[in-house]
Design a protein around this nucleic acid. Sequence first.
RNA 1: GCCGACUUAGUUUAAUGGCAAAACGGUGGUCUCGUAAUCCACUGAUAAGAGUUCGAUUCUCUUAGUCGGCACCA
Length: 637
Amino acid sequence: MNDQFIQIQFPDGKQQQYERGVTLTDIAHSISPSLSKKTIVGYVNGIPTDVGCQITEDAQISLYDAASKEGIAVVRHSTAHLLAHALKRIYPSIHFGVGPVIEDGFYYDVELDSPITPSDLPQIEKVMKQIINENVEIKRKEVSREKAKQLFAHDPLKLELLEDIPQDETVTVYEQDDFYDLCRGPHIPSTGKIQHFKLTKVSGAYWRGDSNNKMLQRIYGVAFATKDELRDYFVFLEEAEKRNHRKLGKELELFMFSEEAPGMPFYLANGQIIRNELESFLRNLQTKYDYKEVRTPLMMNQRLWEQSGHWDHYKENMYFTQVDEQSFALKPMNCPGHMLIFKNERHSYRDLPIRMAEFGQVHRHEFSGALNGLLRVRSFCQDDAHIFVTPEQIEDEITLALKIIDHVYKVFGFEYEIELSTRPEDSMGSEELWNRAETALENVLNNLGYPYKINEGDGAFYGPKIDIHIKDAIQRSHQCATVQLDFQLPDKFDLTYIDKQNEKARPVVIHRAVFGSIDRFLGILIEHFAGAFPVWLAPTQVQVVPVSQVHLDYCLKIQSQLRQLGVRVKIDDDEGKLGYKIRRAQMQKIPYIIVLGDEELKENAVNVRKHGEKQSISIPFKDFKENIVKQINDRSI
RNA sequence: GCCGACUUAGUUUAAUGGCAAAACGGUGGUCUCGUAAUCCACUGAUAAGAGUUCGAUUCUCUUAGUCGGCACCA
């Protein structure tokens, strides 16, 4: 009798008996018809499963609708199939690559003789919607390898994928109408369940992510459970576009680019002020931590780069020049220069740690297609430091480096996440050394009580590293700071110090950067603050606006007193209406506008309006001075 | 580097195989003013090169740059 029934357990622990071979849809329906309608996918004993699949054993199940993380992923995956289905109808000779789910949506890689352009997307969407209206059933089929080979005989990319499916794995094909695809699934039961999607962009993509392979065409799309979520997605993109640092950089006259130096930013007076503030902020902090700032040449003999290993590993990204029959290279990194400084004199263990810092301008020939405003450039300034330590000092020094990073990021209001990257496959150095280094990094993180994620095998070939990912104001993640242990460089440059036993010993080098690239960090800050910088960073901190020209003298007096305190003040002495000048200062996102007229003159007061606010208040000039100086000194945000 | 799109005045945007339009900015004048644009006038552009054409900013090709991806990211 028991053969006929199975026990189904639900997430809340309740159990129920069903007939053997029952489907998830049947189960959902038994609970409520509306549930069965909403259900997109089920997990059977933790395995994602089509709702139409028959269950033949006792099982734990959970059901998901489109609003769930599990459900929407399946909807997105099925939307990718829907896209492929539509493409097949429009371009019968098309070949398919892969079509996975990504954040917010999906893509499909296809091979087609004619290019698909953004203007083709509406037509493709139209066909997709037709197929949705047809509410085509999506059927899962298990097939033999032979059968699969036949089915995809005309689709060389799919055959390649088929080859890679492990022998012990069942090959499944999903079929909807005349379209079928090699796929593990699961999928939604029919195309009618797809509602809120949009195709977003087209691009090229190398087959299997390898630039040696041919380039396919990739079509991206997004899909959500509700219309609102879809709309929010595009609203978010618009918001992000308003903060775009390239746009704001132009509007606020922070920096520019020229065809004469692609990928190399020119800093205008406003942008340079911010850079200088960032630099001096960190410089002061580093002084407190007993760093010694140095400066090394931009260009050094090619020999040096051969010795450091850059010639072998990084030549393609370097700029070279020939002078007096000698080959020189623009430095892509500061480390070799710092090694030379270390070697410039003998060191005792008493000298260590040596914390050598440089705001070093480096040049890297990035691929033209990689350039992206300030975020990816060919020339940038690293807030680099190399800390030369004895093995025993590693943990303490890493701790100090992390403390500086924490201090700096708090000032900008950045939350951050830590990743520890361990030994990669092509690593150099003994396993013992690596284990010790990795343990050291873990100890530090544990002692500080920092949560962190481990990236197995993602370290540099010369040592493990800690990367810091900051979250900006609209929750985008950026990698900036890094702390890396290096055992190779000291070897390559034969660095030594004299230890307690009066013998030569090898120091360890810690590479660390806080901003990473000042240029990139500035780009991130522009977007983080949407161009409205905190007072200490703002290129102009106070804009003084006279009510009329007769108040200019008072304005000049106020300006001069603020300038004495180091405040960056401008007077808007153009003729023109007050309202117009307020507007202009607001658009420039200047933190404080002060309006001066008869009333202020009489009271020795200033009328203050903060950026972004509609109200203004009159306060004694003395109070304003004290306030703004405090804000600047505190670097408050 | 690869795929695709794009490049019009200082900036943002319009239009066209036959005189390239506007706003802001700038300049000159006007207004003498209390919190997001006083009014008027003037100024100024088809990325570079080649081709097709009677005629190209528009069509084609090349180059450069930019953007979205891919790849790269010691």
